[in-house]
């Protein structure tokens, strides 16, 4: 069943992606096309097949818990759109006057 515009808006909200009205139209049709193609997966015989998350078997990699040099704070903040007092600055997340 094709996704409706409202469902596409909901996915966009989950993805934190602002889409303009004309984009909603385009994304809906592109998504529905792709989903139609992806549906061929329903034909695959996958009973008793375990999923693969990584192609090469990797296990947890451990290292000694020792202090090594890392980026200086000012360097780590150098690309921030806004920073103050050694922190990333973001818009207020609570309503009302502080």
């Amino acid at each position: 069943m094709p996704l409706t515009s409202d469902e596409v808006r909901k996915v966009a909200l989950l993805a934190r992606l602002e889409l303009q009205d004309d984009e909603i139209e385009k994304q809906s049709s592109a998504l529905n096309n792709l989903l139609e193609h992806i549906n061929v997966l329903q034909n695959a015989d996958i009973e008793l097949v375990s999923p693969t998350s990584h192609s090469i078997p990797v296990v947890n990699v451990l290292r000694s818990d020792s202090i090594v040099p890392s980026l200086d704070r000012s360097v780590a903040l150098s690309n921030a759109p806004e920073a103050r007092d050694g922190c990333f600055l973001v818009p207020r997340i609570m309503d009302g006057d502080a």
């Binding site: 996704l3 996915v11 989950l14 984009e23 994304q27 792709l34 997966l41 375990s50 999923p51 192609s55």
Partner: peptide
């Protein structure tokens, strides 16, 4: 990029995970 973020968010969203993501990973095993 928006399209791929959208499709990725959709296939990972509640209720669709098994139908798409898990199945795709099983096909990956095949």
């Amino acid at each position: 990029v928006k399209q791929r973020i959208m499709i990725g968010t959709y296939v990972l969203s509640a209720g669709y995970y098994d139908a798409y993501y898990r199945r795709a990973q099983q096909v990956r095993t095949l």
